[in-house]
Amino acid sequence: MAKEVSDLTTIDLFNDEKRPGRPKTNPHSRSVQIKINKRNQVKRDKNKGLKRVEFKVHDSLFQQLEKLAKARNISRSELIESLLIESLANK
């Protein structure tokens, strides 16, 4: 009898076969890993003296920020921070 991968009635024939892909290296599920990583990121940012600021901007302004950040070869976050610093220094 030939084994067919899609044949569910002979599933016991496939128990000893290795599945393709990377081996599982973390005991936690992906959702738990994401929470742990986010918590660690917040701790790192806090130790660096960083605070999270979130706001919404219109799509056209967002595209301008993206374009300017790419032209300066910096991240959007770094660009916004530099623009805020510059604006506050001018007051």
Rank of each mutant, 00 (worst) to 15 (best):
V53S: 11
I11R: 09
E81I: 06
E54L: 11
A71T: 06
K56I: 13
R19T: 09
K51P: 02
L61W: 02
D45M: 10
L83E: 01
K38E: 15
K51W: 03
D45E: 12
K3M: 09
L61N: 04
S87T: 11
R44K: 13
E66C: 12
F55P: 00
K56C: 09
N90E: 11
K18P: 02
S77E: 09
G21V: 02
R22K: 15
D12V: 10
L88F: 07
L8S: 08
K91E: 08
G49D: 01
K38I: 12
R19M: 13
A69P: 00
H58N: 15
S82K: 12
D59G: 07
G21M: 04
S87L: 11
D7W: 02
V42Y: 08
S75W: 00
E78T: 02
F62D: 15
R22S: 13
G21D: 04
T25R: 14
E4M: 09
F14W: 09
K3S: 08
L79F: 00
Q64G: 03
S31D: 13
E4D: 13
L88R: 05
S29W: 12
N15G: 11
L84Y: 04
N73A: 07
S6R: 15
T9H: 12
Q63A: 14
M1I: 10
Q41P: 07
D59R: 12
G21Y: 03
M1H: 09
F55G: 02
E66P: 01
R30S: 15
K46Q: 11
M1W: 08
S6H: 14
P20Y: 03
T25P: 03
A2I: 13
D16N: 07
D16Y: 03
H58T: 13
L84T: 02
N26C: 10
L13N: 07
E86G: 04
S87I: 11
N37L: 14
L79Q: 00
K67G: 03
H28S: 08
R76E: 05
S75D: 00
K48C: 02
L50P: 01
V5T: 10
R19P: 06
R44I: 07
R44L: 13
E54I: 07
I34A: 14
N90L: 05
G49E: 00
S31H: 13
M1N: 07
R19E: 14
F62C: 15
L61I: 08
L83C: 02
I80A: 01
